[in-house]
Design a protein around this nucleic acid. Structure first.
Length: 640
DNA sequence: ACGATAGGACGTTAGGCCGG
DNA sequence: CCGGCCTAACGTCCTATCGT
């Protein structure tokens, strides 16, 4: 049930079961009486306590939504009406305390509930909480292989270097024996006679080399993949040279296809380097790549299945993979235990991060525009992740009007929805994700999209607003230059202790201002074309202002989200939990099971369900309808 | 109000490692 | 089996705070 549909009676029941009052049932009765005789008429003048049976009262209170209650006013209403009744001689003042106490405890309890802030959001505090630093430098699990023992490229004998080059060229498609331009149907510029010529050429190729369909298929690999493989090779050679006393001249790329050596290397990684079996799997992957490359000529199948070496390596790989899958739950457990928080705690984190958007810092100084915008952005991202744990990739791809749209529900209320179509070349099936976001996010997204974000982009209107936004003053340029000149001539303020530090600091300040001035045209252009909901603010690299968080910048989303959660959890629970965006998915799926809400709808929301095609509107609707049925409170404890 | 200073935050890069 | 997410480390700049 969505928080906004909570009714008064179900909260009363829950309150009566709380530790504080569960052993004194009469308090619950007092509360009902207080409502019946001294509260409800304030909200509904037609309510007649004297003609209402207990059963009717329950029904009435079940229709009365908490959101329409005014918790702050309840005691005042009660006092006023009760005192009036005393004055009228209807009731004795000595009984007041019974009912007032019950009511007071109920109101107090309501305010302590997690959903209270959602139903009755407090206004932003003027002062942000004190800064909490939670940057912990974790010692690396093991030293980097590259530094420690890997074989250096510079020491590679020429023959080996040539082997490596061949290997790379092969997977870049440069050594493939067959021309890849099979039938060039899309090219209209060729003439019929040119095509005849091409056909003849192709026939000759096929005669010489056999048909390409009976040859192994070379899927071109990304450069990053080659680099990854190469590192493994360097480590392998490093192991041979530094630990197994091989001479560099002995080294040969084909040694990696020697199962005896490779198995030994994998064991060494596990025992000496304390790697997981995952690294063994990766070693074999690189080895398979080498084996395929050097047996290409001998194979006449699409997948090298006629090459025993390749098959043997594949078997070894699946053996390691199986081992890794067995170990994985324990490894995950270990990685996860320092990060885990409950969903309730995550909700408190959101509230904390909201208070960090205050216009003044804890010390009382006004904070500058970019800081407040920054805190808003982090708060909103974390809030989305807590209440709709989507992938961070989806988060940074949001574009208002394209991938993030505002929709009207059947009952007339507005909410936001996400509609993501992945890039065609990346996904040939044109998959679409379309899902509603919980309405708890609507007000915040409104605020961000209509007020904060436009204001931030408008900061680039002219140079003075841009400098003000970044906490710089144009007049400081001259001042700093003067101070620098003076310092170089030995004229220094009396307080200066270290001349070098003074000059370095002044130079830095000057550089900071100048770099903001220099990039002005660039950031103005950035802001003009910026369409992403979230974007970089360019604190230490001003030219990055209003740049989206692209693939290249993805790590930023990860690091600032986990840093923000780390700080918040330290401030709130004195425990640093550096939750990465993916962790919110774990927390969410745990919560939805704990409180017994709709698992399927949650899975669909976070993108684990079947993704539906753009053309099948009916399917989209059914998915959307499935989600929306419980999107507004999948995290809530179920009330009666 | 300003300088000194320490510690921290954001952005970038390279390399490790995971998810599907 | 691959692409790309995640982490560590570092550079530049910011902020809080204290002394004068």
């Amino acid at each position: 049930m969505a928080t906004h549909n909570f009714n008064v009676y179900s909260t009363m029941i829950n309150w009566s079961k709380s530790d504080e009052v569960k052993n004194t049932p009469q308090i619950f009765k007092h509360l009902k009486t207080a409502f019946k005789y001294w509260i409800l008429q304030e909200f509904d003048s037609h309510f007649n306590p004297n003609s209402t049976t207990p059963k009717q009262l329950e029904t009435y209170l079940r229709k009365f939504l908490v959101i329409n209650l005014n918790p702050d006013a309840l005691l005042e209403i009660f006092d006023r009406r009760f005192d009036q009744a005393v004055a009228n001689g209807l009731v004795s003042s000595t009984t007041k305390g019974n009912y007032r106490s019950a009511l007071g405890r109920y109101v107090q309890w309501i305010k302590e509930q997690l959903w209270y802030e959602e139903l009755f959001p407090s206004s932003l505090p003027v002062y942000a909480p004190p800064l909490v630093s939670a940057s912990q430098k974790k010692p690396p699990l093991r030293s980097k292989a590259e530094k420690e023992y890997a074989f250096k490229d510079a020491n590679m004998p020429l023959a080996l270097q040539q082997n490596m080059d061949f290997w790379r060229s092969f997977w870049q498609g440069k050594v493939v024996l067959f021309t890849q331009n099979k039938v060039d149907a899309g090219n209209e510029k060729t003439t019929a006679s040119q095509r005849r010529q091409q056909r003849e050429q192709r026939r000759q190729e096929l005669t010489a080399k056999g048909t390409e369909y009976s040859r192994p298929q070379v899927n071109i690999i990304a450069n990053s993949t080659y680099k990854r493989y190469k590192k493994i090779v360097n480590c392998f050679f490093g192991w041979l040279v530094h630990f197994e006393e091989y001479h560099p001249d002995e080294l040969n790329l084909l040694m990696l296809t020697d199962i005896v050596l490779i198995e030994e290397f994998c064991v060494w990684l596990l025992t000496e380097r304390k790697c997981t079996t995952s690294s063994s799997v990766k070693v074999i992957q690189a080895v398979i790549s080498i084996a395929k490359c050097f047996t290409y000529e001998q194979s006449s199948t699409r997948d090298w299945s006629d090459i025993p070496l390749v098959q043997q390596l594949k078997n070894l790989q699946s053996h390691y993979l199986e081992q890794y899958k067995q170990q994985k739950p324990q490894l995950d457990q270990k990685r996860w235990e320092n990060k885990e928080i409950t969903h309730e705690q995550a909700q408190l984190v959101v509230q904390y991060l909201r208070s960090c958007c205050a216009e003044r810092s804890n010390s009382g100084t006004l904070r500058t525009g970019n800081k407040i915008v920054w805190n808003w952005q982090v708060y909103l991202m974390v809030k989305i992740l807590v209440y709709a744990p989507i992938r961070q990739e989806e988060l940074r791809k949001l574009i208002f009007g394209k991938t993030l749209i505002k929709v009207k529900d059947n009952n007339g209320t507005f909410r936001y929805a996400v509609k993501l179509k992945e890039h065609k070349t990346f996904n040939q099936t044109h998959k679409v994700r379309f899902y509603p976001l919980p309405s708890i996010l609507t007000a915040d997204l409104d605020m961000w999209l209509q007020v904060i974000r436009p204001k931030a982009l408008l900061a680039t209107k002219d140079l003075s607003t841009w400098l003000a936004f970044t906490n710089k003053k144009l007049t400081d340029v001259e001042k700093l230059q003067q101070q620098l000149e003076d310092a170089q001539q030995g004229i220094l303020p009396a307080s200066v202790k270290n001349v070098d530090n003074y000059i370095t600091e002044k130079k830095r300040e000057l550089r900071a201002i100048n770099s903001c001035i220099e990039v002005f045209e660039k950031v103005k252009e950035n802001a003009a074309v910026c369409e992403n909901v979230f974007f970089s603010l360019g604190f230490s690299t001003p030219k990055s202002f209003a740049q989206p968080y692209t693939d290249q910048r993805v790590h930023n989303v990860t690091s600032f989200v986990s840093a923000a959660v780390g700080r918040a959890t330290k401030a709130l629970f004195n425990k640093e939990c550096f939750l990465n965006p993916h962790g919110f998915r774990n927390i969410g799926s745990k919560q939805v099971r704990k409180v017994g809400n709709d698992k399927a709808a949650f899975s669909a929301l976070v993108g684990h369900s079947l993704e539906v095609d753009d053309d099948y509107a009916a399917q989209i609707t059914s998915d959307y309808e499935l989600i929306i049925a419980s999107v507004d409170g999948w995290w809530c404890v179920k009330y009666e």
